[in-house]
Design a protein around this nucleic acid. Structure first.
Lengths: 158, 158
DNA sequence: ATGAGCGGCGCAAGGTGTTTGCGTATTTGC
DNA sequence: GCAAATACGCAAACACCTTGCGCCGCTCAT
């Protein structure tokens, strides 16, 4: 199922559910001018084929007690497969790490990490990250203001 | 509604829905050992109070045709309120910008931007971002590998 | 040109899910 | 201790979802 096989109606379904996953098949069906049953089938296909990878509630971080969002750039001490695997394993074990990406550029990885406060950030960096034997260097930035924070793909919805 | 007023059951509801927003109130009710109607009421309260800020389908970027995830650091040309407002306005207008945060550190903003390919990235940087009068400097990194990519808050679920 | 096969579609029915009113139990504040 | 507020489960009415069926249109092979 590649891009070429998504028609305009599929895209519309994806965009609608990306925006509000609580829309009923009846709601969606009205907007795409199909019946609820056909809408249900198309949706099931998009799920089966992995276009829709999951459904999630977005929880308000501040209200839930997470005061800080941090971007942390990391350099590994030696670039070899063992260290990369060790680092990946570390990332998988830490629920406060929301994102971890290997990048082009001067730093090897960028992490997005949520903590309750500065103390939490300090602990994360000094007690968890820096002591890890694969980690050589760490640069931490704290988010001061968020202009936009979605995971939304630009699906050309309309 | 602060953190102190979320009990263990509320947290469990949040964690379950964060993980899978398609769980029915019946499913959730079983797991938190309440009735479906009480589960429904608690959920409604969490929504009303803004702890649950929304529900979204997660769309597979690659399958939907977005081959590149990019982190772009931006410096503004002059730090004043006008430029910051202009930049914020630009970010709001660009659906390919998923995230935009003002940060501590050497760069003013970090953006997460999805594009279909290198050409799309180049266009974004050279035709949209750099020509903007508020933008002075741009550093672009392309994601080579993603170890983790969630928006999940560590809610101490269990 | 024609017929077979396939995929998309809507209708309708049966099953599941949701919400709300009601009454009871528990907790909280004075 | 008492009254008020809150949390709870039950049950009923309504909404929603899925799937079998049949129809239609398109494509491909003969």
């Amino acid at each position: 199922m590649s891009d070429a096989e998504l028609d305009k109606t599929d895209r519309k379904i994806l965009a609608l559910l990306q925006d509000d996953a609580r829309l009923t098949n009846n709601d969606i069906a009205e907007r795409i001018h199909l019946s609820p049953s056909q809408c249900s089938r198309r949706r099931a296909r998009l799920e089966r084929d992995g276009l829709i990878a999951g459904y999630h509630a977005r929880i308000d971080g501040e209200k839930a007690g997470f005061g800080l969002v941090n971007f942390i750039s990391v350099t590994l001490s030696t670039h070899n497969r063992n260290n990369a695997a060790r680092f990946a394993e570390l990332m998988a074990r830490l629920p406060e790490v929301q994102e971890a990406h290997a990048l082009t550029g001067e730093m090897d990885y960028i992490l997005r990490v949520v903590t309750r406060d500065l103390r939490g950030l300090s602990d994360f960096v000094n007690e968890t990250l820096l002591p890890h034997e694969a980690v050589q260097n760490v640069k931490t930035s704290i988010v001061l203001q968020t202009l936009k924070d979605t995971s939304a793909l630009p699906l050309d919805d309309s």
